[in-house]
């Protein structure tokens, strides 16, 4: 029996809205540690790894680990029916082929439940190695989203270069060339405007902008985004889900043939 009650139900909707355009169907794995989702996008160029800890839930009961295969588009439709302040409770039987979502308004004056059919999805699970990254940039999530959007209007490939002076995003296309440099800013009055760069050694990597732009759909989740890079390895783009967990995107680089 699975029963999990999330007071900030809107976090679930923001996570699903952030990933539903990259991944169509995915297995949500539930165990005593909480909810996890790992899936590659349809072109196998990027990977999503989400974890929501059990202690994020006001009530969490998971008698035995289970994997719930779902269409993320259908899940998004169901979560769209929840009020932004609703408490969301998930229920599923161990041998069940459905999962029920219950939405309760804060004043408990409105309760609704939606039952979603589960699917059999055979998804390949990848091992994500722990990496000691050369460069880690924590910046306002809105800034990152804006850079992706602005550069996408100029080119479709971006070189991200982290040096002691800052992080430079460069693209070029038929229109011309664009450079955006983001510098360390630890003195901003508001914490959410700060940019922190931790550089062990300079690194520059090339990526397809359309994936980085798609990752920015997670912007509503968090005030900051963290980009972690190391030579010749996928970039990790991470959004914290408040203090309940994380949503990580990994994107393979474009490398000299």
């Amino acid at each position: 029996m699975l029963e999990a009650r999330l007071v900030q139900g809107s976090m679930l909707r923001k996570v699903v809205d952030a990933v539903k355009d990259l991944v169509s169907d995915a297995n949500i794995d539930v165990s005593s540690s909480g909810f996890s989702l790992q899936a590659m996008d349809t072109s196998h160029v990027s990977l999503i790894a989400m974890h929501l800890r059990a202690d994020a839930f006001e009530h969490f009961r998971c008698d035995r680990p289970m994997s719930m295969g779902m269409s993320l588009a259908n899940l998004a439709k169901v979560l769209k029916c929840a009020g932004s302040d609703d408490i969301v409770t998930l229920k599923a039987n161990d041998d069940g082929d459905t999962v029920t979502f219950m939405f309760e308004s804060p004043k408990e004056d409105r309760v609704s439940d939606f039952e979603l059919k589960l699917m059999d999805i055979d998804s390949e699970h990848l091992g994500i190695p722990d990496t000691d990254y050369c460069a880690t940039v924590t910046m306002p999530a809105g800034e990152y989203a804006r850079i992706c959007k602005d550069l996408s209007s100029i080119g479709d490939t971006v070189v991200i270069s982290a040096t002691k002076d800052g992080v430079k995003f460069t693209t070029s296309g038929d229109v011309g060339t664009a450079n955006v440099t983001v510098r360390q800013n630890t003195t901003a009055d508001k914490k959410e405007d700060q940019t922190i760069i931790d550089l062990k050694e300079p690194v520059a990597l090339t990526f397809a902008l359309r994936y980085l732009t798609s990752f920015a759909k997670a912007t509503p989740l968090a005030t900051h985004v963290t980009l972690s890079m190391t030579r010749e390895l996928p970039v990790m783009v991470e959004y914290a889900i408040q203090d309940m967990g994380h949503l990580r995107f990994y994107l393979a680089p474009k490398i000299e043939d």
Partner: peptide, 14 residues
């Protein structure tokens, strides 16, 4: 010429 790599090239299947 730059070639897009697959994520599986970097993360072994578990």
């Amino acid at each position: 010429k730059l070639a897009q790599r697959a994520i599986g090239d970097f993360f072994p299947s578990a």
